[in-house]
């Protein structure tokens, strides 16, 4: 087992995986808190078109992902709150982006293997320079996030009060989406376009189920994210099944275990858990989910 670590592709996989797991776990906490899980899903699908365009042009697919996801994040930021609840519109844009991706791959000859790599991750073929790019982007993302940490947390938990106190909520929201675009572009290397949810949302959502204190939830989210990634990599080396399958399976297992635990404790915790609503577009029947209040206040304006 241990001699595996002498091989450079294993080292690269672990290095890139660790950086990605750290960044996605921290960003994921805010994604869940801000109920933007679907935005993450959308950004990764749009990134698929970018990644395939880059493959076609013969440049690194990471660059293509960056270009497309950053543009899409700017677009979403410009639309702001109007993006919420627009399943049909978002779905149409997503499908078109995927369709474009298919076209680009079709123009490129070795379509099959490349597609699967982008869609489901190709962590075992990450190069040393990819690791360096990932590291640089990861550090930049985390530094920026630390810089805006407190206002972002405030704006995420209670946007109206934050706005009233003079926090630039709109600006923070655009900045956050841009950081999210970078994070997703990196995460795609590990788990692929289709499985971004497993690293971005599942650890944070499970952590929020288990504790309601931000610091504890963040720490737990990081621990879970690292555990899923390392666990997935180790299992993949031992068991020969794809890394992304193990990561997705581990995260699904833990997420539903966390829901089960939360259910068991619910009578004691009462209303606390509704501080972190996890539905990003259906404004359903959460008694005091913050989205509901937001939409209610929007309707009142």
């Amino acid at each position: 087992m241990l001699e595996l670590f002498q091989q450079s592709f294993v080292q690269n996989a672990f290095l890139a995986g660790t950086i990605v797991a750290l960044v996605t776990a921290i960003m994921g906490y805010f994604v869940v808190l801000r109920a933007q899980a679907f935005a993450g899903h959308a950004l990764s699908h749009i990134g698929f078109a970018g990644a395939t365009a880059a493959v076609l042009l013969g440049i690194s697919s990471l660059l293509g992902m960056f270009a497309f996801t950053l543009l899409a994040a700017l677009g979403m930021g410009a639309l702001g709150e109007r993006v919420r609840g627009r399943d049909v519109e978002i779905g149409m844009v997503l499908s078109f982006a995927l369709g474009l991706g298919v076209l680009f791959l079709n123009l490129y000859t070795r379509q099959g293997a490349q597609t699967v790599g982008i869609l489901f991750g190709s962590i075992l073929s990450v190069t040393r320079s990819d690791v360096l790019v990932t590291l640089a982007c990861g550090i930049a993302t985390l530094l920026l996030l630390i810089l805006i940490f407190r206002p972002l947390l405030f704006a995420s938990i209670d946007p109206e009060v934050a706005q009233a106190r003079g926090v630039p909520v709109q600006l923070l929201s655009v900045a956050f989406l841009l950081l999210l675009a970078i994070t997703i572009s990196e995460a795609v290397q590990v788990v692929g376009v289709l499985l971004v949810f497993a690293l971005l949302v599942a650890p944070a959502a499970a952590a929020i189920r288990l504790t309601s204190r931000p610091a504890a939830a963040l720490a737990l989210s990081i621990v879970l994210g690292l555990a899923f990634t390392w666990g997935g990599l180790v299992l993949a080396f031992v068991g020969r099944w794809p890394v992304s399958f193990y990561i997705a399976a581990l995260s699904a297992l833990f997420y539903f275990a966390a829901i089960g635990l939360d259910r068991l404790r619910k009578p004691r915790r009462g209303l606390q858990s509704s501080i972190a609503p996890d539905s990003c577009k259906v404004l359903g029947h959460h008694p005091i989910g913050h989205e509901e209040r937001m939409s209610a206040s929007e309707a009142a304006h």
């Binding site: 869940v32 899980a37 679907f38 899903h41 699967v116 489901f120 289709l194 499985l195 949810f197 497993a198 949302v201 599942a202 959502a205 099944w241 794809p242 992304s244 399958f245 990561i247 997705a248 399976a249 995260s251 699904a252 997420y255 539903f256 829901i259 996890d278 539905s279 990003c280 577009k281 259906v282 359903g284 029947h285 959460h286």
Partner: peptide, 23 residues
Amino acid sequence: RERDIAIGVIMTFALSLGILFLS
């Protein structure tokens, strides 16, 4: 129906299961 995240996690798991079968 109100739980995007639950559906998202199940979806992700199903996709990864698919890729496992295909691999």
